[in-house]
Structures are given as C-alpha cells and as structure tokens.
Amino acid sequence: MLAYIIRRVGQSVLVLLVVGLVAFAMFHFVGDPIDNMLGQERTQADIERLRVQLGLDKPFVVQYWRFLEQAAQGNFGLSYRQGRPVAEIMIERLPATLELAFVSGLMALVGGIALGIFTAINRRGVSANVVMTASLIGVSLPTFLIGILLIYVFSVELGWLPSFGRGEVTRIGGWTTGFLTESGLKALILPAVTLGLYQMTLIMRLVRTEMLEVLRMDYIRFARARGIREKSINFRHALKNTLVPVVTVMGLQVGSIIAFAIITETVFQWPGVGLLFINAIQFVDIPVMAAYLMMISVMFVGINLIVDMLYFAIDPRLRADRTTGGH
C-alpha cells in the first residue's frame, strides 16, 4: 500500500510539473513580459536591466526551475492589471469560490447519491421515471443557460432571489463568508444550484446504473434467500458496493466543480477566482492566469489523491497488508 501511495504522489508531482510548464510558457509566448511591465517610454538600457533582473537572460531550464520555486511559495509576481501581488488577490477571491463550490459539491453528492438510490430501488415507479427524464435536461442543458433560466424565473419574474453578487459578507480573519447573513445565503442559492446541477445529475445516473448492477449480484440474491430485510439489502449490502466503483468519478466530478465555477461566476458576477480569471484573460493578465491554472491543478491532484485513499478505506480487498492468510 505504501508503494502505491508513493507511486500516486509521484504521478501527482509529474502532473503539476507539466501544468507548471504550461503556466511558465504563457509568460514567454503570450505577449512579451518586458513589454507588459515597462511603459511606452523605455530605453534599451531599461530593457536590458529588466531582462537581467527577471532572469530572462538565463537558460530556459534555469528560468523554469526558478518559476517553480517561486510558484511553490505562492509567488506569481505582480498582477499586470492591478499592480498588486497575485497571491494577495487570489486569497481575497478564494473564499467566494470555495464557499460556492462547497455548497454545490455537497448538493451534488448528497442529492446525486440519494436520487441515484431512489431511482434504482424504484426503477419501475412513476416518480423514478420522472426524475430520470428530468435528469436528462440537467445533463444536456449548458450551465450558462440553466443559470440564465434560473435568474429569469427566480429573480426577474418572482423576485425571490438576487441575480448577482454575494450579498452581505462577514469578515472572519482573512476569510469572508456569506454563510452568516440572510442576503449572503440567499445569494448562494441560484449559483450553487446552477453549478451543482450538472454534477448532481451525473452522479445520480452513475449511482443508479451501478446500484442496478449490484442489485443483480449473487450476494444480493443470497441475502434475500436468507430473509434479510429489503432496507438492509438496499442500504447495507448494495449501497456500499455501489459506492466503491463510483467514488473515484464522484471525487473527480466534485473536483471539477471548482473549474466549472468560471462559467457560473461569470453568469452571476460572483466575485470568486473564476471571475477573476475571466477578467484576467480579457486583459492578458498572465500572472493571474498562471496562478489560477496552478491553483486549479493542485486542487484536482489533491482531490484525486484523497479519493484514492478513500478507496482503500472502503474496500477491504485493496487493503492487502491486513490479509490474515487463508489459502
């Protein structure tokens, strides 16, 4: 098991190095950093000085290594647009995105698993079929359209919920939260639903398919033959076996929520890192873009690792080291 963990961590590091290379390349090939940093009035001497100062005269590999060193310390330089350290801007924006992703992810997981079980157990029932049909809409409609539809119904027509922004936020240390005010919570609802709906339907369909598969297994039949209650068969015998194979995909889905947040944040003008990234693209604010890219990939890789560990926790067959022999 230790060897496996080491291998997975190694793979994760490799992924981060590649993403780092892409981020690094952006500095060099999208626009000229010298151009970006010096104004129109500049002398050849200024340019040369900055080249040396930025290390641009060094070989590629050395520059890449320096970039990684800085990135590992969270240092991506100054934003071209705001002139402030990128890390500072990111940290300001992160709570909004994390809170949104957390609520959406929770909704996707809890709702997806619950509906998946429901539709699998009642697969011939009317309500399960209604849910399945409705889920097709969730899968096929693009996120921005769902967002706009929700805004139209709940903000414009009914006037129940705000259509943009985070509402009132409370500052706790370096963190700003919308969880503590009514307007903050209200503002969360539409973006969270928009962002989580797609993942929820995906998880639901996945859980349903897998659960139907599991319910056909011999051990379920054997449990029935022993007179085990339906409730115990569904939730004790079937559910755990259902979750083992889908836990990876669910982890990835929930992880991708942070990436998908770009669209939702744009639609709802949600002041998170996604919106920051979109604005950065418009201004070719390379340091912000690079930092965002690195942050997203670190999160993805991290979630992936956690999911793999989870796998070990649920499935005794993978815990090879605790085998007590017996062949």
Partner: peptide
C-alpha cells in the same frame, strides 16, 4: 427465508458480500 428454508448457490466467489 433463512429461518425455515435456506438456499445455497453455485458460486461461492459471488455469493458473499465482499465488503462485509
């Protein structure tokens, strides 16, 4: 079932719940 009549299936590889 189980109390007054029991059943044994063909394949012991698949008859037992692997996670319990």
């Amino acid at each position: 079932r189980g109390k007054r009549m029991g059943m044994i299936f063909q394949d012991p590889q698949t008859s037992l719940n692997p996670l319990l």
